[in-house]
Design a protein around this nucleic acid. Structure first.
Length: 214
DNA sequence: CACCAGGCAAGTA
DNA sequence: TACTTGCATGGT
């Protein structure tokens, strides 16, 4: 069987098992950008608390957050962990949008995806996964997001070698699936759901996994 | 108590 | 280039 059919079969099983995931869990593109940084190596429930703090204080917008001192920003996002690092990273993103695009979020996100990805990766604190999450879920570009769950699920099921890195995994998807934003959106969300419920690092539930014997 | 969670950058050899 | 370490909260 070719990789294309295999990846399509994985998707079909996950979708049949879980149904649509309605990602990204955010109300605005700006909230997606913030969440993408806050969720770096963090539990999403903790990120939700951090975002709620920002929303309740009225700082969940580019204009308001830009006027917030970095040490105060850090206090609001404390529950997401690494709060000093992440406050600096949010500030780096805000500074970039303001200095390079005059604070115009739509102009920033509306660029061609190749240019936007390059800009994102040039910002201190935004790596491949964070950049691709922003491209897919904030800019609605057909970019596949690879994360720790993607690597773990595919390697445990022996679909990829354990030593595969980010770009190798990403190419597997982009070379074997149609470049469809809605498909990539749902696929990544389903992999995260699968990782949380069945393919956990400790106490996995492989006996109940919808991908068993694929 | 130990371990984990939707990474990334900086330091070391 | 290829490891290793720091960053930190809240849940299991």
């Amino acid at each position: 069987m070719g990789s294309g059919e295999l990846l399509q079969q994985v998707y079909d099983r996950l979708y049949a098992h879980f149904g649509p995931q309605h990602w990204w869990p955010a109300e605005t593109p700006f909230e997606v950008l913030v969440g993408a940084i806050l969720t770096q190596n963090a539990n999403w429930k903790n990120v939700e608390k951090a975002i709620a703090n920002l929303r309740d204080a009225g700082f969940l917008s580019l204009e308001r957050m830009a006027e917030l001192p970095v040490d105060l920003l850090a206090e609001y996002i404390r529950p997401s962990g690494y709060y000093n690092i992440k406050a600096g990273r949010l500030r780096n993103l805000l500074d970039h949008i303001r200095t390079v695009h005059g604070g115009d979020l739509d102009a920033f996100l509306g660029q061609p995806p190749e240019a936007l990805r390059e800009e994102l990766l040039s910002i201190r604190g935004i790596g491949p996964e964070t950049a691709d999450s922003m491209l897919l879920y904030a800019a609605a570009r057909p970019v596949f997001v690879v994360d720790a769950y993607t690597h773990r699920i595919l390697s445990r099921h022996e679909i990829i070698p354990e030593e595969y890195g980010y770009s190798e995994i990403q190419e597997l998807f982009t070379d074997n699936l149609p470049a469809d934003t809605a498909l990539f959106n749902e696929y990544h969300a389903l992999l995260v759901r699968t990782g949380k419920e069945y393919c956990r690092k400790s106490n996995p539930r492989c006996d109940l996994c919808p991908l068993q014997s694929i």
